[in-house]
Structures are given as C-alpha cells and as structure tokens.
Computed example of a mutant assay.
Amino acid sequence: MTSTGLGSLPGDDIREWTRVLLDAVDIPFLAELPARPYGDMVSRAVAVLTELAADLQPAGWRLTGGSDPRASLDQRRARSLLAEDLDVLEELADGYTGPLKLQLTGPWTLAATVELPRGDKVLADYGARRDLAEALALGLGEQVASVRRRVPGAEIVVQVDEPALPAVLAGAVPTASGWGKHRSVDGPGAVELLSLVTTAAPTVIHCCAERPPIEVFTKAGAAGIAVDISLLNPAAWDQFAPAAEAGTTLYAGLIPTTGPIPDPEKAADPLVRRWRELGLDPELLKKVVITPACGLAASPSTADARRRLDLLRRTAEVVAEAAENT
C-alpha cells in the first residue's frame, strides 16, 4: 500500500513542507500553498500557460487576448513563484529516486474559472476553451520535462484537479450575469479536451464529488482516479468497479481534512467495507493509494496537517491487512 497527499497544504514555508513530504508520504509531491499570493491552484495553472497571457482582476484571472508572456505582471509573479518552488524541490530532492507528483488544475475547471478578455468564462467559447486546454497541455509538458531534468531519479506522476467538471457536464456553471447557466458539455466533448493533459506522464484525475464522471476520466486516459470516499454514492461505486478491474488505480480519500482525526481502523473502514460489498478482488485493494479526503489547506495549522499526513501510512497498513484477510 502507498500514500500521498492531494496538493494543497497550510502555511507558507515551501522549504519545510518539501522536506516533510519527501519523508512523510510514499509519493511525495510539489506542495501548493494557497496562503501565499499566487500560490493557489488556479494561479499555478496560469503560471504554466506559456502560450497564453492572463492578468488578475478583482473577480479572478482573465485572459488578455495576447500571447506575450510579459503582458501581465501577475502572471510573471505566478511563474516566478512556481520557479522558486521548483528550485527548492531540485535542491532538497537531490538524489531522490521514486514517484514524484505534480498537481495541475484541469482544462474544464480552468475554463469554468478563468474569464475571457471581454468577460464571462472561457467555458462559453468553444474555440477559447480548446486554446486554453492546448496551452495547458503544452505548459504541462514543459513542466514535466523540467522536473525530470531537475530530479533525474523521479518517476513523474501528474494529478489533474477537476472539481468543476461535474457542474460543467450538468450545465450548472453560472454565467457572468448570474441569471443563467452555461450550456452543458457532453461526455465525448469532455473527454476530448481532458485527454490533452493526460499524455505528459501517468495521470491521476482528482474530483471530490458524490458522483465524479469516472467514465470520462478513464476514456481520457487517466491511470488513476482520486476521490473523497465519504462522498461517493452507490452509482459512483458502480462506475468505479469496472474501472478498477480494468487496472485504474484508486486514490482513496480517507482522512478528513478538518475536524477530529480518526484512528486508522475507523478511517479505513468505509473503503474496506464497500470493497467487500462489491465483491472486488482483494489483490486490487492492495494497490489503492491512501490520501486525505481533499487538499489540506483548510487545516487549522501545519501541525494538524502533518498529523493527518502521518495517519496515511498507518491507515494504508490497516487496508493492506484487511486485503490479506478478505
């Protein structure tokens, strides 16, 4: 059994968190620290967009309609922060070998968040959202190549965060006026753009929802799916079962991000119980990666977040033991 986190963490000390993550989890990752200016998940993605320019408005990020990467001071600052974090990773991961995870906001969540130059979301414009997805894929490829040069022993894994995709598919993303909703996107259309960002490295798609679009994720080329186990409804489990049997790895969000910290047995129980109810192969349960339910940025302190990360491996041991006894 293995463990990892899902990206965001509290505080602003990237150096200390990088040290912690290289030791505390089985799949270390480049932390996102949204407490810092330009450290949130959308700003990280905008930093990766080497072919599109954007600036930061009071309502959030907006494309500026140009391709000059120097067009926006905010975008340059986001890129600078990402570069500094990669420098820290290169220094502290010197000699590291093994899996290493990078997180990136997915094309549909980005399209539902970033605005067009004239207003409204990129989601409203078919051509613009494709341009955004292509630029994101290109930038991701460059980032993966850079990390491979910086940490030669790393086996890169990419986590694509798509919290907004269920709303995109359901036609539930509000328009700029707030009076209407953007038109829904069908499954094949969602797969088309999402598949652009699954080719740079083995990719895990993360979506905390009651019914994440698992079929869309697998058709887009996801090697793994990260979910909050406490949220999944029976229909989602019914979709996941054939995916697991086809080789898709489950990243099981078992450790709550806030509130009381459970013991390992209590944390593992929802996964083990449901696995047995579905009659899934116990050998596949051994391949599940244990994670927090979502990012840990909302933890009240770095010490609290560290305790939740420390619980991951102990929970993984309980799950592994349960697999042996199933």
Rank of each mutant, 00 (worst) to 15 (best):
P166D: 11
S80A: 08
F29D: 05
T326P: 11
T258P: 13
V272Y: 01
T315D: 10
P260R: 11
Q57P: 09
T64W: 01
Q103K: 06
V227G: 10
T109M: 01
V147I: 05
S72F: 01
C207N: 05
T291G: 04
E265N: 13
D40R: 02
G153R: 14
T315V: 14
V20P: 00
T4W: 07
Q103N: 12
E277S: 11
E51V: 11
S3N: 12
T203F: 00
P242I: 14
A268I: 14
A252L: 08
E162C: 05
P166G: 13
P264E: 10
A71F: 14
R211F: 10
E210K: 12
P213D: 03
E321M: 12
W17L: 06
W61N: 13
A246D: 05
P213W: 03
K121C: 01
A24R: 10
E192C: 13
T257C: 11
R118I: 08
K219H: 08
L132R: 09
L193G: 05
A133S: 08
G39P: 10
L165Q: 12
A244T: 03
A111S: 03
S230T: 02
R44S: 06
A323V: 05
A167L: 10
A209I: 10
A78N: 00
C208N: 09
G127A: 14
D40K: 01
S230R: 03
A53M: 07
T199V: 04
T203Y: 01
S146Q: 09
A223K: 05
E162F: 02
D26Q: 04
A241Y: 14
T249W: 07
G295A: 13
G119F: 06
L196M: 12
I14G: 08
G11K: 01
R211L: 15
T248Y: 15
P107L: 01
R36I: 10
R313P: 03
L49A: 00
T4P: 05
A53C: 13
W275P: 15
L194I: 10
P262E: 00
D310V: 10
Q57T: 06
P166W: 09
A316C: 12
V191L: 09
A35H: 03
F217P: 15
A35C: 11
V185K: 00
I14W: 08
Y38P: 01
P174R: 07
A190F: 01
S184E: 12
A53F: 06
G253L: 15
E283H: 11
A176M: 03
R79P: 07
L232I: 06
